[in-house]
Each structure stands twice: as C-alpha cells, then as structure tokens.
Design a protein around this nucleic acid. Sequence first.
RNA 1: GCCCGGGUAGCUCAGGGGUAGAGCAACGCACUCGUAAUGCGUAGGUCAGGGGUUCAAAUCCCCUCUCGGGCUCCA
Length: 667
Amino acid sequence: MSDQVAAEITVSLPDGSTRMLADGATGFDLAQSIGSRLAKDAIAVVINGVESDLSTPLSSGVTVRVLTGNIEEGRQVIRHSTSHVLAQAVTSLWPGTKFAIGPSIADGFYYDFDLPDGAHFSDEDLVAIEQRMREIISEDQPFVREEHTFTEGLALFADQPYKTEIIEGVRDTNLPADEELALEISPSGAQVSAYRNTEEFVDLCRGPHVPSTGRLGHFKLMRVAGAYWRGDERRPQLQRIYGTAFESATALAEHLHRLEEAERRDHRRLGAELDLFHFPPEIGGGLPVFHPKGALIRQTMEDYSLAMHREHGYQQVWTPHIAKSTLFEISGHLGWYAEGMYPPMEMEGATYYPKPMNCPMHILIYKDRQRSYRELPLRLFEFGTVYRFERSGVLHGLTRVRGITQDDSHIFCAPEQLADELRSLLAFVLDVLRAFGLTEFEAELSTRPEKFVGEVEEWDAATEALRSALEAAEIPYIVAEGEGAFYAPKIDVHVRDAIGRRWQLSTLQVDFQLPQRFDMSYVGADNSRHRPQMIHRALFGSVERFFGILLEHYAGNLPTWLSPVQVCILPVRDDHEDYGAEVLSTLRAAGIRVEMAPADEPLGARVRHAKLEKLPYVLVVGDEDVANRTVGVNSRGTNDPERGVALDEFVGRISQEIDQKSGPGLS
RNA sequence: GCCCGGGUAGCUCAGGGGUAGAGCAACGCACUCGUAAUGCGUAGGUCAGGGGUUCAAAUCCCCUCUCGGGCUCCA
C-alpha cells in the first residue's frame, strides 16, 4: 500500500490531548500508540461516553477513554465476560440449558439458568463448572460482536425462551425492563447485538467484552442459589450461580480477604463469642434473648437515647403489646398490612392482635383529651416492642427479627410547624448517630407515588420541608421519585460502617392518613379545630438491628462507654489480690464496670482471655503497684503496656473517655 | 414461602454400614507467675427428632424441626 498515503484520524483523550491514528484504527490501536503497558492492560474503551469493545474502529473527532481492569468500569467488563464463560461452561456440561441473564453486580457477577429436566446445581457442580471455565479461558476464545435485526435475533435465539422474551420486550417497548436487563441488550435502534465465542456458543449481549477469554481467569464461583425469573415469585425459579472476578490474582485475593474480614465481624458470630445474645429454637426464629452482657450494652444504648430525647423535648410513653382488632381497623393496618401481622387471638368475644406498630397507640394518648395549639409540637417517644410476621427465609440474626423494639417517636404539630420540626428532628437524629460513632451519612428522599392519599399541595409542602431539612443538615441525598409510601413522603438515612457497608437506619415520615383516620384535632389560637400533622420517626430503627450493626461496625471492639466490662484487674500473684480488690472498689465507686481475675492461672493466659473478650483495659497489679498505688495499663489494640500509672490518674482518664464516648482501638 | 447446603460433647470440627473421636472450654489437683495458651487428671453424647431399609444405621432412604447462603418480601 505504499502507493497511497494512509488517511489519518484524530481522536481526543480524557486529558484534552489529541492523537493521530491511521484510518480504521481501533481502540486497541489507540492504547498501543499510548504505550505497550496500557495495551496490555486495556479491557475496553469508552467512545464519546459509550462503552465499546477494544476492536471497535474509531472515527475522527471522537473522545476515547481506555478502560483497564483496575478501575470499576473495567472490572465490570471482566465480570460480565466471565459470566459468559460461565454460561458456556454450563451449556457444555448440561446441554439444553436455557439461559436467562448474567449481569455484573457489585463485587462480582451471576448467571441464571433453567437446567434441563428441572435439574438443580449442587455445590460439587461448582467445582466441575469452574474446571470447564478454566479450559474455556485457556482456549483463548475471541468475543466476536454480531449485530442482527430483531427478526434475525429471534431466529438466532429461537430455542432460548428467556432471551426471546428479552428481545421481544425491547422490540415492543424500546426499553429494557430493568437495570440488569440493560446489560443484556441495548435499546438503541432496531439492532440486537450478540457476542459469539465459538461456533456453538453465542449470547445476547450489549457488550462490551474483553477481546478474548484468555484475558480472564482471576475468578471464583461463590455459591448457588434459587432466583425467580425477573424477580417475580409467580414465575419460574431459576438456578443462579454467583461468582466474582478481578483483573489480577492479587485483587481477587484481596477481595476474598475482605469477605473473611466481614465474616469475622458478623454480629451473630460475635454475639456467641462475646456471650451477648442467642436465638433459642424453643422460643422461635427471629426472637432473640439478650444475655447479661448483651442486655447491659442494650440498656446503655437505650439509656443514652432516652436521655437525649428528654433533652430535646420528647416525653416517654409506654403502651401494651396487643390490642383489639378495632384499633387496627381504625388505623387501617388490618386493611393494608394484615399479612405482616401476627395472627389474631380470641379472648372473651374480642379479637386481639400483637401490634405491628406503635403509632395507633400513641395517637390514642394524644386523643385522650382535647389538645391546644400551645402543646404542639407534642413529641411522644417509646421503646416499643412490635411483632411482625417475617417469612422464615428472611430472618437474619439481629438485623431481621420478628420481635422488634423500635425507638419510636411520633410528633404531632401544626402544619406551619412542620418544616422547622423536620429540620431540628433530622439534626437531632444525626447527632445521636454520631455519638455512636457513625459519621458517614447518605439520605434518600422518597416522593409522592402514583397511588396516594391526601392533597397534592400537602404532599408538595411536606416534600419541600423534608428537602430543606436535608439541605440544612448538609448530608448527601438522592431523590427517589415516586418511592414514598402511599400516605407520606419520607427521608431514609443510611450510614456507612467501618468497612464501607451501607445500612439503612433512621426514617422520618410525614403521615397524611392517620390524623384523618383517627379524626385528630387541636384547638388553634383562632378557637377553632384544626387537624395536626404527624411525623413518624425511628432513629435506630430497631434496637436489635442497630445493636447488630454497631457490633459489626466496631468488630466487637465497642467504645468504652458501651463495653459491658470496661476493665479487668489481674493480680500478678495471689498476695496481690487484696490490693486488686482495693483497685476494684475504687473503680466501681467511680461507676466503672470492672472485674478481677484471680491469680490461679498464669498471667499471660489471663491477659489472653481478657484480650479475646475485647475488653478496653486490662490492669495488671504486682509488687511495684502495691508499693506505689499504681496500676499497669494494657489498652485494647496494643501489646505495649504502660507501667506505673497512678490509680487516680487512670480513673480520671477512663472517666473522661467514657464521657466522650471514645475508647481504645481494635483488638 | 421457594432453591442450595448444613445439624456429631458447651464451642470448633473429624469420622461416613460393625458398640463415638480430637482440640478448646468445664470440673479436680498441683503450680503463684509483670502482660496473648502451666502441667497432670476427671467428667461430658438417644450423633436434631420421627419413620423406613438392614443381622447390624451417626453413616443409606423418606418426613419433620432447625441453622446458614440466596430469591421473593421489608408497610
């Protein structure tokens, strides 16, 4: 081709620079022109914001970003490509398998299958599948993009009913049904794209993919599960395989290590190790008992919360656990929440239900007498235990139980007070959460759904009030359009824990329905009756769940104020026990929770036991300490004890720490 | 509720048709020690429960309960 000058194209890079390439150059050529290292690491490209294969020819004037495996978008491509390899492996081991979808997800991927003759995967199957996947990877099969019309696509996947349904769905609506389907098919134009690895194996997919299976390999199949087609329990249950994949063996190993770390933090494990709570089968699923140390932690949490509520103008109330059906008919719970309620009990001709929520009872307290505008906002607060029928499969340690103690509050206010009340309420909620060591917040503002009660103007005003509370609190939030309950817009507060996991905790909901159902009123300054507005608010959400989250957040290393045992005294020999007892009573008099372990085991063993219990402080007392009235301080998180600390000084230190709700670090 | 996998000593687990095992914990005795496991000894089990197959079942089969991982659900 020396007889003609090669045409050239110009492309822009993310840093604003431009680069000249031969006409017909691909993303891979671009990466190569930048550097051989980049060419080696390149997974895919983003052309004018659209993710594409490395083999895509570039046209002049486009902006191109090269995706490598060490960034999230690149990993998604690796995971999605690995899911295709999984599908090919399964079809070669189970001929006749029907495929559903196989998207990348946070930290991995999955693929849903419908095996011939209703077969199911077992854990042993995963080993064989992984083996087959490694063969496919070593064959270095190319991912070849094919584009088809809808008609061709339907013909290509004629024996794949799930793929057919996806293609028809997009053809008829021009939209994939949800985010995960969007990875399978692109709605743009009248095209269906597919990626072919071999003569036999081709899968519907939007792409992009790695150039060939040889680029994969750092993966692991994690588990098998059942999953309903399109998440609908009325439709067939498919066999899902979860896996994870990374760009390198190191990154995969790090990920698996993080999973182990999360397992070590599992509150169910810590609950047993630290003797805090358990779930006796004789009582029933989802119904925990708290042991002395667990109860102490829980009580400390509740005491602090109650004190903060009183300081902020809340009045504590107390209400029973069951009520006649009449109450839940008025509240409407029997109408729209009956499935979530425990079944009724008949007694003396009346029907009683365990309460699923506290609000109706708080409303009855409000309604016991006529209320004046001067009393508003009226803030009622209760640690109210409610019972909800959670299906057996959803129970999960303390984070999903059937007996739930809510730190529940209902605020009744005049409409013109709503915005101020929400603002101070949100600030209060965040302050209390911060005291428990949770500092990273993200909120969700859920707005009016299609089906709703009340007036549009009311909804708009309440939504604006919630929004302004979020703005004032200066926390990041997203708006979930149409996600509100039918009776109210709401704010949900999520927190990030120490290892970055997101938990939904507090909720603030305005309620347009209950004040009306209960015909609530107050007498205004104008001497006429008005309808109050109502706010539901749970701060911890559920005390049990919050307890579990805190345990995981701290990995069991609770700050000193929450530790059930704050100090353990270890006399070096038994003739130091008298002094140890003196230290114990001094600390106890200062309100510190303290124990002493007698010298009938070697000191090292006793230190070890105390460390395994994750106690904040171990005090060793020996000859020098008896002589000088000092203690040896071994703090959690260190193996470097401090010798000769004056007893008074230690008391001062730990008291201050308890006061500030801080404490030594991890064990 | 549905799919998959478990349930053997208080805990963690081994054993997989022929009379039940280990480590830790517990208990007893000795040791008296300056910072993450002192030694010796003792006791501890209807192998989740029920039914079946077998001369014989912890072990194989069926049912139930229960726990875990997912799916659905979370007002």
